[in-house]
Simulated scan of single mutants.
Amino acid sequence: MSVLAAKGFRAAGVVAGIKSTGKRDVTVVVNDGPSAAAAAVFTSNRCQANPVIWSIEAIADGTASAITLNSGGANCYTGQFGYETTERTAQRTAELLDLQPSDVLVCSTGLIGAGDEIFRAKSLAGVEAAVNELGSDETSAHNAAEGILTTDSHEKLSQRQGAGGYVIGGMAKGAGMLAPGLATMLVVITTDADLEHAALDRALRAATAVTFDRVDSDGCMSTNDTVALMASGASGITPDEAEFTSQLIEVCAELAKQLQQDAEGASHDITITTVGAASVEDAVAVSRAVSRSNLFKAAIFGNDPNWGRVLAAAGTTDAIFEPQELDVTINGVMVCKAGTPYEPVDRVDLIPRETTVLIDLHAGECEGTILTNDLTHDYVHENSAYSS
């Protein structure tokens, strides 16, 4: 049940009319405790939406008892009026749940510039409706996950059980603008483990750094990205921090993979791994450079194993390597060895959706992986008409 798999939480997702589709578009998740410890990471985009600005301040004390999310309007670049909308959303949530506004995180997703009087009225009405429908059953969990979707084709859910029986559950939304710094789109993770803010913060940052921060579908970073982790402590279990972090990484990795697989218009899910690097940073830099090459992404869309585009992208980085020592393997076929052609490219089968690219720098022992997608006609069409 994702965010309701852990004890101590209630949630709901309702139709507030923000979307023109008539689908659920406001979600509330509540932590009933006994603990209210929380942590969150946000987009590193300097142009941040009003909910991000609010939530950064709200989480500063390391606690959060509720999170309110809406889809259908980003409430970004909507001026002071937009910030007041976020503030009123937190205030109304707090009033209904007998909390302080600073106990409430707020998230929005949708079109930048959307957030007028109608948006405000529907958002606030949606909060009231969601609080009235709060539950802890599977239907409530499903409705909550549905209420945060925009161009997604389905909900993204994950959960794990840790040593002793504590649970971590999460839900995510995201199908475009997947190139974050610390977070990807909107993600809510809950746990009934009993951990303080500092431990949650360390675990969350460790997890997002190797999962959500490694999803780079289209090189475009959102203004609204938020990953929030709330701990109710309801299991009474205080897990080993390393073990908890490991479980949290698994939850985040599964959600990140689902984000990749639902990327707008994609026909190939591409896993790019760079090995033999002098540092993890070098490995990630090379993999990310390839993932952001439109020439490479277009080639994969056309089922063309053009490994020259991989090398060209790697060469734009500052990573340590000798250009004439690079190896490239695509879907198990080493098409380039020591900077020269090797196995025939016609042996590479690019018909399957899952695509792997392995780059060996022969410069060290480190590696790093980036998840991306191909560049398709459908992606261009969907984003050419996003605001119309």
Rank of each mutant, 00 (worst) to 15 (best):
D103Q: 12
I59W: 00
V15H: 05
D304L: 09
G135L: 05
A172N: 06
M177N: 01
V3Y: 02
V104S: 04
T245K: 08
C47P: 00
A199G: 07
T68Q: 10
A256T: 07
D103H: 11
A209P: 00
A314D: 02
G8I: 05
G302D: 11
C76N: 09
V380C: 11
H142F: 13
V345D: 08
T317P: 04
S246L: 13
V275S: 07
D360A: 11
V28G: 02
L69C: 13
I53A: 12
T369G: 01
I370G: 04
S35W: 03
R347V: 08
C107A: 15
S291H: 06
E325Y: 11
S222V: 05
K19H: 09
E322F: 12
A283H: 05
G22Y: 10
A298I: 12
T356N: 13
V106D: 01
V41K: 01
A114L: 13
T376I: 10
V348L: 09
R24V: 04
T226H: 00
L358T: 08
G113I: 08
V335P: 01
L4K: 03
M230Y: 09
A231D: 01
G181W: 05
Y379W: 11
T274Q: 06
T226A: 06
T27E: 02
A363V: 07
A314S: 12
G302K: 11
A38Q: 04
Q80N: 14
T317W: 01
S65D: 04
G265P: 04
L204A: 02
R24C: 08
V335F: 07
N45Y: 08
L111Y: 07
T109Y: 03
E382I: 15
G79R: 12
K19F: 05
E322L: 14
H154N: 14
I168L: 07
L375E: 03
R347L: 15
S35R: 08
D216P: 06
D349P: 11
D240N: 14
V286S: 03
V14H: 02
T376W: 07
K7N: 14
Y166P: 01
T316G: 04
R92M: 12
A385N: 15
S232E: 03
N331Y: 08
F321Y: 13
T190P: 04
T340F: 13
V3C: 12
A253W: 02
I330F: 07
I320R: 15
D318P: 00
A179Q: 09
Y83F: 15
S55F: 03
E117D: 15
E155L: 12
S55R: 01
L97E: 04
H377P: 00
D98G: 11
G17F: 00
V348P: 03
S279D: 10
S291V: 02
N224C: 07
L311W: 08
L124E: 00
L105G: 02
V41D: 05
L157M: 11
E95F: 08
E87K: 14
D282F: 12
G302P: 00
A64L: 07
R353I: 12
G174I: 05
S123T: 15
I118L: 14
K156Q: 10
S235H: 08
G339E: 04
N294A: 12
A199Q: 09
D225F: 05
A74R: 00
S279W: 09
G233I: 03
T369N: 05
W307Q: 00
I300A: 02
Q80V: 15
P305F: 10
E365A: 15
A175E: 01
G33S: 11
S267F: 00
S279T: 14
V284I: 15
A40Q: 00
A36T: 14
M171S: 07
V52Y: 03
K19T: 01
